[in-house]
Design a protein around this nucleic acid. Structure first.
Ligand SMILES: [Fe+2]
Ligand SMILES: [Fe+2]
Ligand SMILES: [Fe+2]
Ligand SMILES: [Fe+2]
Lengths: 214, 214
DNA sequence: GCCAAACTTTCGGCAAACCGAAACCTCGCT
DNA sequence: AGCGAGGTTTCGGTTTGCCGAAAGTTTGGC
């Protein structure tokens, strides 16, 4: 019924994350890859999550969160992002260093401590990578976004978020002073011009990590 | 070899805690009671801890930490007490509210985050209950102490620590403005006179939670 | 010195997560 | 329609940590 182990939270969070910036549903094998787990482990957990009413699943089909599952998932994402924001804002971490610590703490911090952190930070709307922090009721403020790699040449916009999956990309972009809020024009593939006229070459990996206004 | 699950940490910590303010060794059954676990579970974990060289144990005998075990235990205690100090010092918790949260976080915080917290707090030597915070090398500064319940009438001294086992006792003492550092004279059993001349009646439960200078 | 109470260990079992190998579907392509 | 590749599930097995019941050990009191 109230099935909320750390493992289950990770499955829910990952299912949620997959649909946050794209629309297709995640498959069991993709989930296995993302979680670094064998496909058979996914099958097993999927059965438990479905039995608890947190996801829907037809055999051999993809996975989808129920309303209850989405609420549970956004709660975990909320914890994760508030913790990341706190680590950068108060504890002297750089934005490429926070993900792993948050990955662990998100499962052990109490609601009370989380809200104390939230209040100290002034109720931030975004984490250091530009990801929206879900509200306690599960609501998420998410602007229309486009992967930089998919943007057309001459596209102008603002950087909305940068995936924190690859710390090397984050360090590279920090060195180039590119982050959420950076305004740019795509001059040529992988070449952006910033507001101050400086141009920057972004690596393909970075272009696949940067989401910009549509 | 490097056996460090959260469960094992709790066993080590509890074995350590038992000898921190008294000298006798803990028995398996006492450990079971403290951990809220069946005696057979203790036997099992004890075998693993002994096999890992963290405790010594002769069958049917009491338990003792090895040097390696004590180092592991003090590391956990250090985490626990720094977290408690942080929750009170920065996050708006009262001293009767921190123990349970610390009990969980002590197993998931990284060394790096712990040291960041430590630095923010100014490297405190004691937690909110007056318990000494072990150094990173396992060293503990521990003054000679005496349970208030065991002190003789007319004994004068300073409150050193108050066990955080019973939150009700902590709230009661906070209301009476008694805490680590409070100077007193034991006027009669369960009756102490404070430095300002006011006298206080402490409950038997409190007298068994308060440790004072010898 | 013996014996029963009290404590400790052994034993079989359970639940959560994980795995690999083997069986099983699906779907696209011919 | 048929077939096979690739994705999914089933199955048996592992580890960690827990349990209760039963068996074994220690020890204090008579
Ligand atoms: Fe993250
Ligand atoms: Fe993030
Ligand atoms: Fe505590
Ligand atoms: Fe404490």
């Amino acid at each position: 019924m109230t099935y909320t182990t750390g493992a289950a939270e990770d499955y829910l969070k990952t299912i949620y994350a997959h649909t946050e910036w794209q629309t297709d549903l995640i498959t069991p094998s993709a989930l296995a890859v993302r979680l670094g787990v064998a496909p058979s482990s996914v099958t097993e957990m999927v059965k438990k999550l479905a039995a608890s009413g947190l996801i829907t699943h037809v055999p051999y089909g993809p996975l989808a969160l129920t309303d209850a599952g989405r609420l549970r998932a956004t709660a975990v994402v909320r914890r994760h992002r508030l913790i990341e924001t706190w680590l950068v804002g108060e504890m002297g971490y750089d934005w490429d260093e926070v993900h792993d610590e948050a990955e662990i703490l998100e499962h052990s911090i109490s609601d009370r401590l989380l809200e104390a952190i939230n209040a100290r930070l002034g109720f931030p709307a975004h984490d250091p990578h530009g990801d929206p922090i879900p509200a306690a009721d599960g609501t998420v403020q998410r602007p229309a976004a486009l992967l930089l790699a998919d943007a057309e040449v001459s596209h102008s916009g603002t950087v909305l978020r940068i995936s924190d999956r690859d710390p090397a990309v984050l360090r590279e972009l920090a060195a180039d002073l590119i982050g959420p809020g950076t305004q740019f024009t795509l001059a040529a593939p992988f070449t952006i011009v910033l507001a101050d006229g400086q141009s920057r070459l972004v690596t393909p990996a970075a272009a696949r990590s940067i989401w910009v206004t549509a």
